[in-house]
Amino acid sequence: MSLLKIQDVTMNFGGLTALRNFHLELAPGEIVGLIGPNGAGKTTVFNIITGVYEPTHGRVFFLEREITGLRPDLITKAGIARTFQNIRLFKGLSVLENVLVANHLHLKANYLAAVFKLPGYRREERRMREKALALLERVGLLELRDEQAGALPYGLQRRLEIARALATEPKLLLLDEPAAGMNPKEAADLTAFIKAIQAEFGLTVFLIEHHMDVVMNISERIYVLDYGMTIASGKPAEVQNNQRVIEAYLGVNEDAED
């Protein structure tokens, strides 16, 4: 059974085709990478999965259920969480509140129960808090829980964004360039962190990344996009030696062509 299945998806923006006949299947528990030069359509894939864009053509299935064009919040509810390429934390809220917000979708009490602090709501709020604190402890941000999210250093903001995504209790985690702007040491820490939470939370991870060390090290399979087309897919070693991938990244050596 596949967890996520993207079937023949095409995405046009006016005259521009950002993604053409894209196919993808993720099995539960996998870590899969998505790479490609800038503008290849990687983030478009994420935006289609999470419902930000409705594809021009094609269908997306999650747990055998079609989710094409569903509202983003419903897709998150179904079990897909994401982080963003340029961090999008709730900067003015505290670290703890950022995580609590991501728990809001599980709240059953209605707003009147919340306003008048009925016992049912109180119980849920207490449980939410416990869960959020446990999660913050797990990712090592517990001491910083009352800090403003926007005031955290860059690396911790990335970590908080992952924690926030985890708080929605996803089955599939989409990471958009989690190691962007990190030095090799930080990137290595992040790799270990992603592997650890993947095992701990029983996640499937699908990530876009430019750091080749990170992708090659972490992914079981890799998809390579160029100009909206899948030009290669397979095990890291296979992809690394693929002629078309090398050309896409380094360009074609015209002198050597004939």
Binding site: T50, V52, R71, P72, D73, T76, A81, R82, F84, R88, L89, F90, K91, G92, L93, E97, L100, V101, A102, N103, H104, L105, L107, Y111, A114, V115, K117, Y121, E124, E125, M128, R164, T168
Partner: peptide, 20 residues
């Protein structure tokens, strides 16, 4: 309350709020 946090999240970043 949790609803208030959701409202503040919308104020801070609508796209992120929706994807949460």
């Amino acid at each position: 309350s949790s609803y208030g946090r959701a409202l503040k999240a919308i104020r801070e970043d609508e796209i992120a709020a929706e994807s949460m």
